[in-house]
Design a protein around this nucleic acid. Structure first.
Lengths: 203, 203
DNA sequence: AGAAACTAAACGAACGTTTAGTAAAATATT
DNA sequence: AATATTTTACTAAACGTTCGTTTAGTTTCT
């Protein structure tokens, strides 16, 4: 009865077990022996399921990203106003970033990938849908800004603080609450709504 | 007459030649044989100047960062108003990021470093001064936001788009002008000043 | 019996690093 | 001023380890 997930099931198991490895140590920092060890297998067994190390890595990253970005996209309902949609998206993204450190670190490794072909493949398959959704959203919100640059700014404002979590701890002025997704989401939303000057739109 | 720079001069030469290597391929992606090759030396010769690979790497990164962040800090004059200072800082930072790709990529590698001791050493020696300067600046500018979070947001808004330059090219809506430092600086300054809504403080 | 999912062992290549030796320059001694 | 000595800045070769990967054989399940 498992004829459809029998082979793929094992592949997925290997992929899920190696996500934390690649997330922490990167492609060059993880050996096939490392992957085999966390899977309870021999290195040679991996070559039954994947043809090369790069094959395994590509599928691991794509798998991790498909999962997460799909979860974000289904929450982008058209029912609310664009501004409420954006607020919700920022909050959701902040919670995802706070919860799933592996996802964030994999993104960083992809951004640093020195093999352009591999990088392009990963990026277009993985980020494009999410970026397009934000792009369409901000285009409805404000016509003064370039929607491309504004989308980038918003995504970065939310994600990067969590990427640099370990680093931020050493910086002067750090307080533990800066790691809470709701606190960061609030900060980003306020900054986007009002900018730096004290005009205050409400309250 | 070269008794003071005789040894250090050669060390610096090696360091400067290996910056592009470590920037592109990272610590694990560069071998001592690679470094030796670009320096026109034998691998063993490197161990005359540096005791370990990690020693070399640490000094390379610290050296590259000291140079760049010092150049940014001396431009932060107290003569102007805080807002003008911030505008200038954003523009300077954007130009630095656009010009020096190695600097940006080294920063990314540091953020991904899995060895906490090494990471902390690099971060505190390198980023702290710059961050402190921005922190003091935004604290004078606006009391509504947490100065720590606001400093982070500003630095990220400027630097990260250039970090992701290769990736952004594959995203829908990209135009070459998005890579121009003045265009990005203008975008960030406007976003910070006015936020998303159409209040317009001045034309 | 036959396909599926492995293991044990080994391949050559590349890795960080060490050892032993050398040519040249600086320093000290006569 | 000429010679001996030390220090500097390396090279050639190799050390043991780890790497990605392969081969040949074995267990497990249908």
């Amino acid at each position: 009865m498992d004829q459809f997930i029998g082979k793929g099931g094992k592949r997925e198991e290997i992929m899920e077990l190696s996500v934390p490895l690649f997330a922490v140590f990167g492609y060059d920092g993880v050996s096939m022996r490392d992957v085999a060890a966390v899977c309870g297998l021999t290195p040679a067994a991996l070559y039954y399921h994947f043809s090369h190390k790069e094959d395994l890595y590509l599928e691991v990253v794509a798998h991790a990203f498909r999962e997460k970005s799909a979860a974000l996209l289904i929450k982008l309902k058209d029912s609310d106003s664009p501004w409420v949609q954006l607020e919700n998206f920022i909050t959701n993204l902040a919670h995802l970033a706070a919860k799933d450190e592996d996802f964030l670190r994999l993104m960083q490794w992809v951004r640093l990938d020195s093999e352009e072909m591999r990088q392009q493949k990963l990026v277009t398959h993985v980020f494009k849908d999410l970026f397009l959704a934000v792009h369409a959203l901000v285009a409805k919100l404000n016509s003064r800004y370039d929607p491309y640059m504004l989308s980038m700014s918003i995504i970065h404002l939310v994600l990067i603080p969590f990427e640099g979590k370990k680093i931020r701890k050493f910086m002067p002025g750090y307080r533990p609450e800066h790691d809470q997704p709701d606190v960061l989401a609030r900060h980003v939303i306020d900054l986007l709504r009002m900018g730096l000057f004290e005009y205050r739109t409400s309250d």
